[in-house]
Design a binder for these strands. Structure first.
Length: 352
DNA sequence: AATTCGACCAACCGCGACCGA
DNA sequence: ATCGGTCGCGGTTGGTCGAAT
């Protein structure tokens, strides 16, 4: 025995909404609200529609402040990063993009963004502007589009996911499903946030001043296998298993003394071979670290080779310190202002 | 000019969650 | 604790369009 239908499908209209229907529904809800009962709403409004259809039409199209049209690069990045982190939880993703609906984002992801990420189509900076399409009959009742917004600020240096991010996304497709329960930290407009679930760390923090990290379990902190960064500005990631090296001390996660001490203690306890370089004031030097004998440079070079397929022969032949190793990597593979991460648990090296 | 194909997106569908009786 | 009604979500479908053939 199947599930009982939510309405009498034989007596409800289906398919595209007419302007008259839109107008009726919109007027009614604006005057009286939904009454917290979508099933009963169509009868009150005088529509031969299923309640679910009315709800969908209102939420996705008629309600105020719905944003239509092209997605911005910033929206692209937010969608991408959230998708990587939490998967296809479209409603949660939509909650981070005011004016966008889950349906909108889902369609956008499936038709454009996913392909763009896989390199099938160029990113939006080379995006061919589509020719304006005449409104479909079903959209004939739309209000006129908002006036053109002022020109956007100049784009940041890098707008689209790096090769690492895309690689990570592709790898993530093979990962086991994310846990069904997770919690987002409270968000407020303009605040920075980051959180980590069992496999991924996510952050939108680009302020380099405050970062919150939420771990979902004690084991989460030891199973970090992937790191994503939604911006390309230096930022601190403070996590006990992720050491973040930026191009200056302020963008290194362990620069703060407390964090530094904790990380160093842990590393020395577990490995005993990682040693930080400090300047004369006892502060950690710019992106400086070194491996002591035993694993040392060989380990470092091996990991770079493992993770990135990088030929480290010229580094190995140099007489530089660990710091020059970072610089070598920055120069050769990441560019200025990039971040390097060392996953202590998996010995992984990541750069952005 | 006609046909085919792929992109796009509004709308539908079914399931699980939630809530009140 | 159980049941029925409703909501909300995410996957899928189908109509329309422009581009390509």
């Amino acid at each position: 025995m199947g599930r009982a239908p939510c309405c009498d499908k034989a007596n409800v209209k289906r398919g595209p909404w007419s302007p008259e229907e839109d107008s009726k529904l919109k007027d009614y809800i604006e005057r009286f609200g939904t009454g917290s009962n979508w099933i009963a709403l169509p009868q009150k409004v005088g529509l031969k529609r299923c309640g679910k259809s009315c709800r969908l039409r209102w939420l996705n199209y008629l309600r105020p402040n719905i944003k239509h049209g092209e997605f911005s690069d910033e929206e692209d990045r937010i969608i991408f990063n959230l998708f990587i982190t939490i998967g296809s939880r479209w409603s949660i993703i939509a909650a981070q993009l005011p004016g966008r609906t889950d349906n909108d984002i889902k369609n956008y992801w499936n038709t454009k963004l996913k392909k763009k990420l896989m390199g099938l189509i160029p990113n939006s900076h080379h995006r061919k502007q589509p020719a304006p399409r005449p409104p479909l009959p079903r959209t004939a009742s739309l209000p006129p589009p908002p006036p053109p917004s002022p020109p956007p600020p100049p784009p940041p240096q890098l707008l689209f996911p790096s090769s690492y991010e895309i690689q990570s996304y592709q790898q993530q497709q093979q990962q086991p499903p994310l846990p069904s329960t997770y919690s987002l930290p409270p968000l407020s407009k303009g605040c920075n946030f980051s959180y980590m679930n069992n496999n991924y760390l996510f952050t939108t923090d680009n302020s380099a001043t405050t970062t919150t990290t939420t771990t979902t379990s004690s084991s989460a902190a030891t199973t970090v296998s992937s790191v994503l960064n939604s911006c390309y500005e230096p930022f601190p990631i403070k996590d006990q298993d992720l050491l973040d090296f930026g191009s200056d001390p302020g963008s290194c996660s362990s620069f703060e003394q407390q964090q530094f001490q904790a990380a160093t203690t842990m590393i020395k306890q577990e490995e005993g071979e990682l040693q930080w370089q400090r300047d004369n004031n006892g502060q950690m030097m710019d992106a400086g670290f070194d491996f002591e004998q035993g694993i040392g440079i060989g380990y470092w070079a091996e990991k770079m080779s493992d993770c990135f397929g990088i030929d480290c022969s010229d580094y190995l032949s140099s007489s530089g310190s660990g710091s020059s190793g970072i610089n070598w990597m920055m120069d050769h593979h990441a560019g200025g202002g990039s971040q390097l991460m060392v996953d202590q648990d998996e010995k992984g090296l990541y750069y952005f």
